[in-house]
Design a protein around this nucleic acid. Structure first.
Lengths: 338, 338
DNA sequence: CTGAAAGCGCTTACAG
DNA sequence: CTGAAAGCGCTTACAG
């Protein structure tokens, strides 16, 4: 691997000048620049990122932190990751998925290693020890999601409250007055205070109350089988329900299947509205689901922008933003019968 | 952030001595060692990985390369990643998921950046341009999967050939003579020559031929809906089939559902054997599927070991290994009727 | 517009 | 057992 020194020697300039050319950080005479570029070309020179990082005190690497990497990465998560990666690249950074377990030591180690410039924290809990740890450090960070009290934190989150209100309002507009909310929370989500689930539940409860609607709520794990079981449970416990809000990507196929087995027609007998999924997720069933899609691409982009803001202007104002889900009509919702 | 220099000053030794203590790389007098450790403690010192990397010419970072990050990351992929991460940690390395697109430049850039010591390449194709590129570089690497001619390459792969033979043999042992193989290849997999699909197909064809069995083959995308469609297609085109080998995690629920809708009992009328999945994948349906599980944890561990071998002994012999799937009986297979 | 030099935070022969 | 010094490959005031 040729170094800057090799290039400088071949082009007959100082290494400083080579650096100026590469970084375009000081004016260089056209002829000199040409010589340097020629030399780099000839040697196949590529700047060593380690040397650069040590000297400039910036690695230009951003770590995406997933808590103990979940069972699987949903399409939403992958789209988010892809978008974040691209945005980082556009802004001159590399984004990498850095796996660390949630226990005390590891995050400290990552922070103090000097390998990364900043952290994008995923799956933020309402009360999140990792956030406190990051706040105590000097490492810039941004949250995807937000804690219970995010006033002083840079974050991007989905506006589950308003998305839920939109969902309830849409169904009420179709004449439905007996709703069910099926969330994606196994026991662990409820206990750990995972924002999207907690906020959605609370908003659902408040909204049906406010509007004087009847409602039930079911928790359902992320699998077709659980979805099927949830459907059966619904038909047992609240057979009068006419509309369901489903916040569970992997349960949708099983849920519709469960209804279908009992002879329940969608949307004839029951409207089903998917929330927080993707267009592909909505297309995973027959009939295609009406959906409020999670803006994962936007979320990825904004997350990185929020972090890079912190990186480039450390003391500066921090962005805080929520983005709303996007309504997309399918064939699974319709006016109430009877 | 305190540096080694600060520690040295406080402990009244040279920075070399501090380094010896930290790395345990030369004998240090007990009293001196104690002073140094005391100083480190007091300052909350943590070695800067960048400085270390530049001086030692090793970053101790391994990049896991996923091609253009698929639609989603399966449970298998996540388990693999988790296991690889842990193994790397045990061996003194950090494993990170480094997203790069497949186009020419990016892999070069990663290689020459100096940020990583080695590469673990996932989803290897039979003819893989990335492998050629890595071979031209001096960067150590290891493959998960293998190319058409992997003789000179370090790799770990699943033995799909023998797993398929075991599957066919098992079903034939139950008296089945009309088999169907449902793979997980959309058009893209077939065209791109993805080893597991190509090898499984070929072995299935050869085995049924060799044993004089009847067979059909269906391609099916990774979704419940596609599985359901595949079941219907099977019942149309080859209704006499009595056993199915299913290599498709996300289609299994839909596939069984498709059979069920047509009144086909599993395993009474049709045996279904899942191949290349996980125990959880087998439990995603009712009845629970008999399965040949992918040894993803083992694969992750061995993949990292193979790479680290190359890192620690550059010219040394390279490991090549295949691991077989593990049979686990469920309730979806049984003797042929009639 | 260009260069000499210090320095980023470490490791590692070399000497004693 | 310990230290002085060179060096890893860059960036960045500073000087001219």
């Amino acid at each position: 691997m040729p170094t800057m020194r090799d290039v400088a020697r071949l082009a007959d300039v100082s290494i400083a000048t080579v650096s100026f050319v590469i970084n375009d950080t000081k004016p260089v005479a056209p002829a000199t620049r040409a010589r340097v570029e020629e030399a780099m070309q000839q040697l196949g020179y590529r700047r060593n990122a380690l040397g650069r990082a040590l000297a400039s005190k910036r690695t230009r690497i951003i770590a995406l932190l997933y808590p103990a990497l979940q069972r699987r990465l949903s399409e939403t998560a992958v789209k988010f990751f892809t978008s974040a990666t691209q945005t980082a690249k556009d802004l001159g950074y590399n984004l990498v998925l850095w796996p660390i377990s949630n226990d005390a030591g590891q995050i400290e180690e990552l922070i103090s290693s000097g390998f990364i410039d900043g952290v994008l924290l995923m799956e933020v809990q309402l009360d999140d020890a990792r956030v406190e740890r990051l706040q105590r450090s000097t490492l810039p960070f941004a949250l995807i999601g937000r804690t219970r009290h995010p006033e002083e934190l840079p974050y991007v989150d989905v506006d589950f409250e308003n998305s839920m209100i939109e969902a309830v309002s849409y169904l009420e507009g179709l004449g439905h007055s007996r709703l069910c909310f099926v969330d994606s929370g196994g026991a662990e989500h409820a206990l750990s205070g995972y924002g999207p689930v907690v906020r959605s539940r609370a908003t659902f409860a408040a909204e049906v109350e406010r509007r004087g609607l009847e409602s039930v709520h079911l928790s359902c794990e992320e699998s077709p089988m659980s979805g099927q079981n949830a459907a059966e449970k619904l038909l047992e416990t609240a057979p009068d329900t006419t509309a369901v809000i489903l916040m569970n990507d992997n349960a949708s196929f099983g849920f519709l299947n469960g209804l279908n087995r009992r002879g329940i027609d969608v949307p004839g007998d029951m409207s089903v509205l998917l929330i927080g999924s993707t267009p592909d997720g909505a297309a995973a069933t027959d009939p295609r689901l009406t959906v409020l899609t999670l803006p994962s691409t936007e979320l990825g982009r904004m997350g990185v922008e929020t972090l890079v803001d912190q990186l480039e202007e450390p003391g500066g104002p921090m962005r805080q933003a929520v983005v709303i889900c996007c309504f997309e009509e399918g064939q699974s919702t319709g006016p109430v019968q009877r």
